[in-house]
Design a binder for these strands. Sequence first.
DNA 1: CATGAATGAGAGTTCATTCAT
DNA 2: GATGAATGAACTCTCATTCAT
Lengths: 196, 196, 196, 196
Amino acid sequence: MGEKSIQKKKYILETARQVFVEKGFKKVTMKDIVEACNISRGGLYLYFESTSQIFQEVMKLESEETDDVFSDNITEDATAADILMLFLQEQKKELLRRKNTLTQAIYEYYFENQPNKKNNVLKKQFDSAVKIIEKLIEIGVDNGEFYCEDCQGTARNIMFVLEGLKISAQTIGITAETVDREIMFILKFLGLEAEA
Amino acid sequence: MGEKSIQKKKYILETARQVFVEKGFKKVTMKDIVEACNISRGGLYLYFESTSQIFQEVMKLESEETDDVFSDNITEDATAADILMLFLQEQKKELLRRKNTLTQAIYEYYFENQPNKKNNVLKKQFDSAVKIIEKLIEIGVDNGEFYCEDCQGTARNIMFVLEGLKISAQTIGITAETVDREIMFILKFLGLEAEA
Amino acid sequence: MGEKSIQKKKYILETARQVFVEKGFKKVTMKDIVEACNISRGGLYLYFESTSQIFQEVMKLESEETDDVFSDNITEDATAADILMLFLQEQKKELLRRKNTLTQAIYEYYFENQPNKKNNVLKKQFDSAVKIIEKLIEIGVDNGEFYCEDCQGTARNIMFVLEGLKISAQTIGITAETVDREIMFILKFLGLEAEA
Amino acid sequence: MGEKSIQKKKYILETARQVFVEKGFKKVTMKDIVEACNISRGGLYLYFESTSQIFQEVMKLESEETDDVFSDNITEDATAADILMLFLQEQKKELLRRKNTLTQAIYEYYFENQPNKKNNVLKKQFDSAVKIIEKLIEIGVDNGEFYCEDCQGTARNIMFVLEGLKISAQTIGITAETVDREIMFILKFLGLEAEA
DNA sequence: CATGAATGAGAGTTCATTCAT
DNA sequence: GATGAATGAACTCTCATTCAT
């Protein structure tokens, strides 16, 4: 596959991403993507053979690009509390962003694909996030910033709360206040008197 | 509509429920339901005019039938802790039941319908659950069973954790241990040394 | 068939008439009529077996009821010119009445049924109208009211003009002025200086 | 759309025309046309989206092709009477042609579309025909061929008679004699002793 | 590589007609 | 007589997928 092909493939994935953002996963058809990309019907099949495959590659691209909220924004002398706060604010932004989110599509995709299967990417992301938060809390505890008896349990709890907020955002709707309240609840639990 | 019609309508709803359990909401077609019910194409349209309408009535039936976990099972001398425990165990059972659950279908339905709209039933259920748990905790605190500074915040937090577990069960998969750990985390937070 | 049955049949025909007025002939379904009559689906079949049959009976009823514009309204001492004028004014009213007319339905019905067949009722009506007008003109000529060389030809011509106006009313639309102009044209041809 | 597409579109329109000729407008389905054209169900939708659209284009094609009876057949030294006669004979041919006529379909189409609306093509054709005939009569009068007091009125009258004959041909049936008689009536009115 | 015409399966929906009650 | 539930055929329309160019 030449350079040009790679470019085109990337173009298709980026355009398709937008389609998934707008329609979720299940309702997207090859035709939708063809039309969004302004390419020929047959053309799409040269690169991909199903919406499932396209969506998988969209998610892959997404995770490659989003990667490191942390490494990008963290200064030398940031405290654990700073970093945790940064992470939570990042999540808040994501939660409240109604558009430009793949959230629904990802949920729909995982509804019918591979829950419990090995290499469930979503699970890996979840677990890795738990680990990072755990470490962070441990550091905070060591520094005397936080108070926490069960760092891993707390990290896991935080992640489930975030998941709960995420799905609620898509189904019952949540406001900035709701998120702030949950964030403050978490921080207070860690012994911080937070002002979100 | 006669008695017989009512029976048939109920039969269709129960059969359709199973279809939604198996395929979620978006992918279900009128044809799927017709075939599952073993009735004629036109027959279904005598009772319902769209999968959306059917699904709404399925949810309604569901909520009517599930209604009162509490009132049914609570004895005179149950403590607040007993009742909370009962509630959490009930949730656990629901969470782990992979089959026979409308969860995915409900999420899919709300993905494309009425988030943020008035009379979002899901939201009402969520809010009412928060209130019940809040009351329960207050009673527990008054009785000296629990320790809790922010009853409402805690109730809300519990519900978001449960939501997080619910969606996780459908996407990344969860085990009984995961649920138990979260339940214990909650109980410990309320000052109970729990044995799940 | 009892008295009650006859009443019901008449009720159905009158209600169906309205349906044909609104939708023409081809697009009317048995269901339309059932719903308009507020009777049961099976019930209609006890009396009629197709929209065609119903329409035929509607037309029959119509012609029985409309019968005699002439006999009803003509005074003893009316002149031929008076009567002709009365007839033409009657036609004008009918032509301009956009609603409550079976015209379209009748045309549609005859489009697919029996043109050229014996007992084409429409043809009989046309021919009989020509004859009446012819007689009228003859009387007028004898009385010195009209001038006319070819009474039958003129009568026929008048009827074709009226047909032309009738179909034009349904397709290109006509105004009262258009009708008046044509009536005046006819009258002038007969030697009358008409004020429509 | 390539040359081939244009050819195919034309092929569909020509085939569809035949279907409309046979069944009128209202009863024609996309399926009828698909089958007549011997193409696939979806194929037709690549070119047209409804029977209405197809019919409109059929009429357009028809009018483009029929256009100029006059310009094609009129010699240098033709008199007004010659031309009028030619026109009337042309109409006669059309009137008596029972098959291969769109007449019924056109009537049905206009029954449910745009009577009285702006750009009612049928109305424009009618009005333009009136104008042409009027001019023709004026020329004839100037040349001493015709006698006529109200050229416009006469032209309009001729057109309504022709309309009357046209609809009568479709509903009660007419013979060549009937048409001839009407043509002679018209010619005599203009002062010509005609031999149809 | 790329196009887009073409196919045909399949979903939605409506109705004429029948038939048990 | 009367009802209206039920059936199944027929129609509309959309798409995944293929294939000649």
